[in-house]
Simulated assay, not measured.
Amino acid sequence: MARPATYDAHISVPLPTDDEIRRVIGDDYDPATTLNVVKMFAGTADIHPGLIGMVRAIFGTEGIDARHREVIILRAAAVLNAPYEWQANEQMARNAGLSAHEIDAVAADDAVTGIDEEFVLLCTAVDEMYSPAATLTDETLATMLETFGALFTRKYIATIAWFSLLSLFLNATRVPLETTDKIGNRTSPLG
């Protein structure tokens, strides 16, 4: 899997106007710092609160290592060929503490190897859940339960499922890529 760099499409859903976004997000909306994914979410109007609620839950859940989350996001982006997801989160992964070697490994064409065992396990889970079978093997699930316990296995599975939905949304709408300076030191799309 190559690092997804651009959309292979000529038509995209336009971002909502700043006025449309402000009506949904409120007076705190800052067009210079709000990421394009959040802007596109605002364009869903009454669905926006649910989407942002899920983002807050995924990026704010207790006990989840930010590096684990970023491994899931980057593997999802690589498997689902999601340019926005890769581009924005490659920087967020660095900000969360992933090394260049770990980021490169997550983009592997085959099974991920050569990095922390927990990272490899999470990449395996992404690969399996995004496969045609759309589930985990008993071996992977048993290893997740042994490694993370039942509560965190549930949280990781929900996180993997969320990034599938998000990648599909990003790819179908073709959310414009960000600039690295806009991402800055973030480890979350909400700042």
Rank of each mutant, 00 (worst) to 15 (best):
A2D: 14
H48R: 10
L98M: 15
P49Q: 11
R22L: 05
G60V: 09
R56K: 15
W162F: 15
P176K: 12
I21Y: 03
E62L: 14
V175E: 07
C123V: 07
A107Y: 02
D65K: 04
A78G: 15
E178L: 10
A76W: 05
T159D: 10
A88K: 05
V37F: 13
T187F: 00
I157E: 08
L177Q: 12
R69T: 09
A5R: 05
F163M: 13
T34C: 00
A2I: 13
D109Q: 06
R186Q: 06
F169H: 05
N171P: 03
R174A: 11
M92L: 15
S12R: 12
A88M: 09
S131F: 07
V55A: 13
R186C: 07
T140I: 06
A111F: 03
N81T: 02
G60P: 02
F163S: 13
L121Y: 04
I58F: 08
S12D: 04
D46P: 01
R69W: 08
D19R: 07
A150Q: 14
L15S: 07
E139D: 15
G184N: 06
L98Y: 10
A125K: 03
P14D: 11
E70M: 12
T153K: 12
H10E: 14
T113C: 02
Y84E: 06
R174H: 13
E118L: 06
I25Q: 05
P16T: 00
